[in-house]
Nucleic acid binder design. Structure first.
Lengths: 283, 283
DNA sequence: ATTCCAATGGAAATTCTGTTCCAAATGCTG
DNA sequence: CAGCATTTGGAACAGAATTTCCATTGGAAT
């Protein structure tokens, strides 16, 4: 049918190879198609969003020209071409391609190194995402509450217990009065009794939410304790009782989710709270 | 028109207000609409581009439910709602350079976000370095020893206690018999008594090395327990008693060193050991 | 100058999408 | 348990969007 595209060995599947294919073909293209090529590379965001009619108008060509352009690159129609422009916006994890390649290469070797790579990758992805999406106000608010409270209870069970215990260490070093609620001997509720209206609870919980954590947070909130939550979704049961909450999304590899972003957020809040207290916010 | 939305003073025009509106309404929503709400906030990128049919399938609802969801928020139809998801994608980080600028600006502004950046940066640096310098043989050897032992003691005090406690969680999930030596009540030596020639100790310690950790590792090594160490230098006192050791270097920011690389290494070794045991290496 | 082929514009056709509508199911209230 | 209101599933509909088709143009070669 299309004798021209018979020579096209393979249609580009990612934006970068599409881009270089267009650059390569650019000179050999007829006038209108070249016009489209230029437009596509200059305003890729528009291409991702617009309809054929809109884009044709912007580029100053007919709708059918866009389709022809896509087909001349080997796609079946314009929609397939557009899908690549969309994917570019959607999966914009930094250095994604390069990372995956490396990961693949080592993963085939199997063994402990491959596992290490996977876990490290998940942790890095979580941290990068955290840095880009963290909201300053949320952090400040949480830090303010902690800085203004007399004593801070730390609550994290099961998977996130390490975060709570790390915070206990860090806060102690920072001179904050903290109590780690570690449910020793099943005495969680009794441990929590010591917290009152002037105190705060920093509660951490991810899906599947540990029931005891939720219960304690709810009960303390009712008693007037300021609850600060670190959790993984706005719909977490923790957000209901929290006076302030921070969302953290962790990537996973295999059956294990990373903890790095959670630890980082927790530490930032703790240090920030200590700074605020030193500056007199809590008085 | 729609009596229900008469009360809606104003329809959200940007993603943030849309987000908070959804969070606010979430609890009052019927089952399927709540399902859509969760899906929308969890995968906003998909929502931006997908067709109604696609998204409905992903969220596990009927196409009409998506439209109803949008209308219950005050939009005239799904398309109007989707426009906001698209705008979010379009306005986010015009290009790489600008992203970096933002980070710079944030760092100088001080505050909790700057701290977060610093800690995240340190963690990422540690992880990248880990991935580049980790030695496969070291990991394999450590995993072999753990896979071949009957029971595994986990020892990490103070700053690295969170790593030990995380391992206790992970190993339990992996079906490895572990015991966390947490020095409760100062009974560390007594806890360690249970480990014998067929067992292993995974000890973690960084500068300044906690004396108890070194003591216990030394003593157990003398008694024939296989000691695997995770530490930060070839000259660490732990390497003397260790049958196998792994070096991990963590970057720091301010007074706090990262833990991410350590956790990642520990997890990789544990999962690798579990795999080896399942494959029959330990028999 | 004529012929031929590729390129182009524009309209027709077709596919697909968002939306509406109605019947069945569900849950709540008296 | 009956009756009512709300929610849900699925099909039908209207409209828009992509793609195809064909006549016309432009330019090069004979």
């Amino acid at each position: 049918m299309t004798g021209k595209s018979a020579a096209v060995a393979q249609v580009p599947q990612d934006f970068e190879s599409l881009r270089s294919l267009i650059v390569l073909r650019r000179e050999a293209l007829p006038r209108r198609l070249a016009q489209v090529a230029e437009f596509a590379l200059e305003r890729p965001d528009e291409v991702a969003f617009g309809t054929v009619a809109d884009l044709a108008a912007m580029a100053g060509v007919q709708p059918s020209t866009l389709v022809r352009f896509a087909q001349s690159l080997g796609f079946s129609g314009f929609s397939d071409l557009q899908a690549i422009f969309r994917a570019r916006l959607r999966d914009r994890w930094p250095d994604y391609g390069e990372r995956l390649e490396r990961l693949e290469a080592r993963a085939q070797s199997g063994g402990a190194l491959a596992l290490l790579d996977g876990f490290a990758e998940a942790a890095i992805a979580s941290l990068v995402r955290l840095r880009e999406e963290a909201k300053g106000e949320d952090l400040e608010r949480a830090a303010d509450i902690l800085a203004g409270s007399r004593r801070i209870g730390l609550l994290g069970q099961r998977r996130v217990f390490p975060v709570a215990s790390y915070l206990a260490y860090a806060c102690a070093k920072l001179g904050l009065e903290v109590q780690l609620l570690d449910n020793r001997g099943g005495l969680l509720l009794e441990e929590a009794r010591f917290l009152g209206k002037q105190d705060a609870l920093l509660a951490i919980s991810f899906t599947p939410y540990t029931p005891e954590t939720i219960e304690v947070a709810t009960e303390l909130a009712e008693r007037g304790v300021a609850v600060v939550a670190i959790t993984d979704s706005p719909f977490s049961p923790l957000t209901r009782s929290a006076r302030s909450w921070i969302e953290v999304v962790e990537a996973d590899y295999g059956a294990f989710r990373s903890l790095s972003a959670t630890i980082t957020v927790a530490l930032a809040v703790a240090v920030s709270a200590a700074e605020k207290r030193r500056a007199g916010v809590g008085d």
